[in-house]
């Protein structure tokens, strides 16, 4: 793993409210001090190993974001910081934004034929500084991913309301069982 000991990040505000930007800055302050983990914020995308998006990527930012994205040498990591970058946040379907990193990849694929790089999604509004550190640690495979997709499916034979109420009157607290599917296991 190339970035195990050293990871330089270029931070790109793609229309964020500043909350995530400040938290990104915050992880370099004495309390969290990620310099101890070899993480550094760089001003030039050319120097960067990772590019941190904060914000839902507004229409106005889009061309600039593509430019900066392409300036980062391969192989690179994308950190989608905050709920806006992950899935568009509260503005996900507004006319002025494209709505998160996934849409951004779609545009990249269509217009430039670029495949999406390794991406770490860090939800939070804004994510705690520690959550960002955890995300970076995940990118380095230093920690286990805790968050897994979960699908719960209710198993039940009753499906028409008439029988339901016959049964419901006899057993008041009847609750059908649920089956859990965890993806990625």
């Amino acid at each position: 793993m190339m970035f195990k000991k050293s990871l330089w990040v270029f931070h790109l505000n793609s229309g964020s409210c500043n909350g995530c930007d400040i938290e990104v800055l915050n992880i370099f302050t004495p309390k969290q001090d990620v310099e101890r983990l070899g993480i550094k914020l760089v001003g030039s995308p050319r120097h960067a190993d990772a590019i941190a998006f904060t914000g839902p990527i507004t229409r106005e930012c889009l061309p600039k974001a593509i430019e900066a994205f392409m300036a980062v040498p391969e192989p690179k990591i994308v950190l989608a910081i905050g709920s806006c970058a992950c899935g568009g946040g509260i503005w996900f379907d507004s006319y002025a934004v494209i709505g998160g990193i996934k849409e951004f990849y779609k545009i990249l694929k269509e217009k430039h034929g670029i495949e999406p790089p390794t991406t770490i999604y860090i939800p939070g509004c804004p994510p705690k500084p520690e959550a960002i550190i955890y995300g970076v640690a995940l990118a380095r495979k230093a920690v286990e991913q805790k968050q897994k997709s979960e699908i719960f499916v209710e198993e039940s034979d009753i499906d028409d309301a008439a029988t339901l109420f016959k049964e419901a009157t006899s057993t008041r607290h009847f609750i059908p069982k649920i089956e859990v599917i965890k993806r990625g296991e």
């Binding site: 229309g15 507004t58 503005w91 507004s94 934004v97």
Partner: peptide, 15 residues
């Protein structure tokens, strides 16, 4: 500037 125009007012009226 105004790179961060996110269409907030319309969103409030709309959704």
């Amino acid at each position: 500037g105004f790179h961060i125009h996110r269409g907030m007012e319309k969103l409030a009226e709309g959704r």
